[in-house]
């Protein structure tokens, strides 16, 4: 028989650490939210400014622009969406999603590379 019959395997209860967002905690976070909001504003301006700066090639400009955007998106995800302290399960879902979305982007590159279309 498989080991799922042993009592130890029944309902693996993950250590349920206390809700990170209980009342006092939340009030502490407010400053952080405001700061991140300010940071995002500043980086928006930086994005705009950088796009008028010549990095040597247009490709380089695109790369820089995307880098800044990714950083901003990361801030939104990590702080506003609480991903910096989320449960396991959410990470698992997102890891798969990220993988598959990258596969999807990769396909567009492959298809573009396609000798018949080119």
């Amino acid at each position: 028989m498989n080991e799922s019959n042993s009592p130890a395997a029944s309902e693996s209860v993950v250590q349920a650490h206390p809700e990170h967002d209980d009342h006092h905690d939340v009030s502490k976070h407010i400053k952080k939210y405001l700061m991140v909001g300010g940071l995002l504003m500043i980086f928006t301006i930086i994005t705009v400014a950088l796009s008028y700066f010549d990095f040597g090639s247009h490709k380089a400009n695109i790369a820089v622009g995307m880098l800044v955007a990714t950083f901003k998106a990361g801030l939104v995800a990590a702080i506003f969406m609480h991903l910096s302290a989320e449960r396991h399960l959410v990470y698992q879902i997102l890891i798969f999603t990220t993988f598959f979305v990258l596969v999807l982007f990769w396909l567009t590159y492959l298809a573009w590379y396609d000798p018949v279309v080119r």
């Binding site: 309902e11 693996s12 209860v13 993950v14 349920a16 650490h17 809700e19 449960r87 396991h88 399960l89 959410v90």
Partner: peptide, 8 residues
């Protein structure tokens, strides 16, 4: 309320 093993 959160389910204990998923915390969600």
């Amino acid at each position: 309320t959160a389910r204990p093993d998923t915390g969600l």
